[in-house]
Simulated assay, not measured.
Amino acid sequence: MTYQPLFILAVLFMLVFVSEWLCKHTFLKHISSSLLVIILGAIVANLELIPSASDSSPIYEGIFKYVAPASIFFLLLGVNLKELRKAGIPMLVAFVLGSVGTMIGVIVALNMIDYEMIFGANSAAIAGMMTGTYTGGSANFNAVALHYEVFREGAVYTGVVVADNIVTAIWMVITLTIPIVMQKVRPHTSILSDDNHDSELERETESVGPMSLAIILFIGTGVLFLSNFLSDWLSGSGVNIPSILILTTIALVLAQFKIIQAIPGAKLLGMFAIYLFLAVVGAFCEIGALIEVGSNALDIFLFTTIIVLIHGLFLLLCGTLLKSDWSIIAIASQANIGGPSTALALAKSVKRNDLILPAILAGSLGAGLGTYLGFLVAGLLGA
């Protein structure tokens, strides 16, 4: 089926509107807009009203490449660096523990399925791919997959990719509920910065004129271009620094200037960009494509589910023993499973502005660490 780009954009915009309206005017007001937009995205994609992962649109690629990083930039403009002192170390500790939980989950999952029959000679490589992607996002998955040429095994590779997309979307929904549920089951003191406030009303009433909108968009797109340019230039010189780290650094520097803080519109643009990103995350939750993989579809889905469940249970256990802030545990887990963009989205969704920067730093760490751990696991298993 051919989808027109303008139609896809129109549907995505409508999903954002509907999720916000439902949260304000119906019994769903107790569910966050972030959760609703993922669910709605999954529904319309599985009804084939918009493309899903298997027939992905350039619109989706643009959202992943430009809109998600832009959301990080705009939201970081409201970050005070003192927030890192309280939450930075606990977040990084939780993130590292989550990475350990992922590796344990991969080993357990391999032993709970007939991996030699399902994955054949690619078993070790796929274990490395899953270690990488559930340590810091899909970039690590692709790095390991390309090295071992797993993509040549079309059905298996497709099955793993689809299962990964589905589980990642489901886990985003689960991590949205972890701080609420665990705080009732096992109350822990939250680490909050002095200026952590609910910006929901502020972003709703923010007055944005054409001039301020133009200047904030100019700054955002300009910095996004500059960070990509510098990353490519440094890479050509033999220094590999992800563009997201350059973007984060520039945003944090700019955020300390009052003249930048005074420009309205950044919070509004940041949240809207996050909603678009999460709608696409939902659209990638493609049930039909997994079924089409064939007889091994259920085993592949079980394999990915076990990895994430073990990761989550291990991290919750560590959080219980360490009496960690449950929001930090949830966001660190999301940094492992989804990467910096979904970790930031979760921090905003649970209204923890003080955890925005730690979430991005943890996710950025995972973007580098995940590849190394992926190759380590693959190598240890004989790839």
Rank of each mutant, 00 (worst) to 15 (best):
I310H: 00
Y134N: 04
L226P: 11
I8H: 06
M117H: 07
F95E: 06
P242T: 09
S237K: 15
I59W: 04
A383G: 11
G379N: 10
L361Q: 04
G270I: 08
S243L: 02
F73H: 06
V93C: 01
S231F: 05
E20L: 10
R352K: 04
M130K: 08
A70T: 07
F229I: 09
M129T: 00
V18G: 14
K267T: 11
Y372Q: 14
I331D: 00
F229T: 12
V161N: 11
M129Y: 00
L81Q: 05
T342P: 02
G209N: 11
G137L: 09
F284N: 05
E20H: 11
L268W: 10
V96L: 05
N142F: 13
I174P: 03
T133K: 00
H197W: 13
F277V: 06
G379C: 09
G238A: 13
G338R: 04
V162H: 02
G78D: 09
I241Q: 06
L47D: 00
D325H: 08
S190D: 14
L321C: 05
P58N: 09
G288W: 07
G101D: 07
T175D: 05
L35Y: 02
Q4E: 15
C285D: 00
T177E: 14
L245I: 13
I118W: 03
G101N: 08
D299N: 13
L346N: 01
G288V: 04
T26G: 10
R85L: 11
R152G: 13
Q256W: 11
E202H: 12
E202F: 10
V16S: 10
A359K: 03
S54G: 09
T177C: 13
G98M: 11
L309G: 01
G137A: 10
V96N: 05
W233I: 00
A169F: 04
L346E: 04
L226I: 12
F74D: 06
L321A: 07
K29V: 04
R152Y: 13
A127I: 02
S231V: 02
H25I: 04
L316T: 05
F284C: 03
S19R: 08
L146C: 03
V308K: 10
S295Q: 15
G154E: 14
I113L: 03
I104C: 01
L245H: 04
V208G: 02
A121G: 03
V308N: 08
S123G: 08
I59A: 04
P210G: 01
A121T: 15
A214R: 08
V96R: 04
I310Y: 00
F218N: 14
L322V: 11
A266M: 06
K65R: 13
P51K: 03
G41P: 03
L309C: 10
V223Y: 05
T135S: 12
S295V: 15
L35H: 05
A68R: 09
T26R: 10
L346C: 00
S237L: 15
I178Q: 04
S199T: 14
F13H: 00
S235P: 06
S56Y: 02
F301K: 01
L344Q: 06
S333A: 10
Y148D: 13
D55L: 04
P58Q: 07
R152M: 14
A266E: 05
V161T: 12
V167N: 08
L302N: 13
G319Q: 12
S190Y: 09
L361A: 09
S341V: 12
G154I: 14
A255Y: 12
I328C: 01
I39A: 03
L346W: 04
S349P: 05
K184M: 14
